[in-house]
Design a protein around this nucleic acid. Structure first.
Lengths: 131, 131
DNA sequence: TTTAAGCTTGAATGTCTATTCAGATGAACA
DNA sequence: TGTTCATCTGAATAGACATTCAAGCTTAAA
């Protein structure tokens, strides 16, 4: 998770002819691919999403929530973190819509936002077993 | 992407009885879930993987490689980064087996390691469009 | 209405990460 | 063999992130 595009490097201005700073082996292909790749905005959005899952503690929280809806103090106990730390992480997951929450009395219960998240989690877990 | 488990917090030692530092609303459920969640090792492995996709520049590289096999200088041109920066990022992706490479003369061509990566990429891209 | 439990929050600190820069490697070509 | 091109690498700097600590809400029970 980082900023992005405080970059405007010195790369061939993609303007004309086979000019280039440090080559460009396949100019045509570069142009074509350049027009097809993901936009910076979308890439940032995706990076945020992947970033949310790029932390062992958050993955443990998610793997717990795959099993059951749990309140903060229980989650803290399950993953052995302080409640404050868990709360910070849950806020992040909440902001990115990976989890949702509801209040019941003094407790706040968290659960996965939707089935996609669980599926994605499982897919990667299985992918890594294959390799 | 971070270290993990230089943590051993002060949470109920999960050992015995209904003891607990700061409550524990559902002791039984906590025990059960605790036995079912992902291991720390696996969580770290998954975090590394997600971490590899948690950067806009790397996502652009991957989205380019979804379209075509490309050499380093072309990739640099496509995503408008220095070749050095691209090389650093590709090394990371290579180490985590997201991409593979082959040398041809003085050029090194990169491509996606397998179909899983492309699928995962597309899934998340689409998921984010839904919301 | 006091007190406390459950959760959230902001600031501060330590750690990790990405880029840049300079230099090194390996392959091709003169 | 010497030179150039394409890529890689290590060190250093700057920026991002996670946890802790202390304090602030909100709800329920005394």
């Amino acid at each position: 998770m980082n900023k992005v595009d405080k970059s405007k490097k010195t790369v061939s201005p993609e303007g004309d002819a086979p000019t280039c700073d440090s080559s460009l082996v396949h100019l045509e292909q570069v142009r074509q691919v350049q027009s097809e790749i993901v936009t910076t905005e979308k890439a940032q959005q995706m990076a945020q999403f992947f970033g949310a899952m790029a932390d062992p503690h958050r993955l443990k929280l998610l793997s717990a929530l795959v099993k059951a809806e749990l309140c903060v103090c229980d989650l803290a106990a399950v993953v052995k973190m302080s409640e404050s730390a868990v709360s910070h992480q849950l806020r992040l997951l909440r902001n990115l819509r990976l989890v949702k929450h509801r209040r019941e009395g003094r407790n706040v219960y968290y659960s996965l936002a939707d089935a996609h998240i669980a599926n994605l989690y499982r897919e990667v877990a299985e992918h890594l077993d294959e390799v």
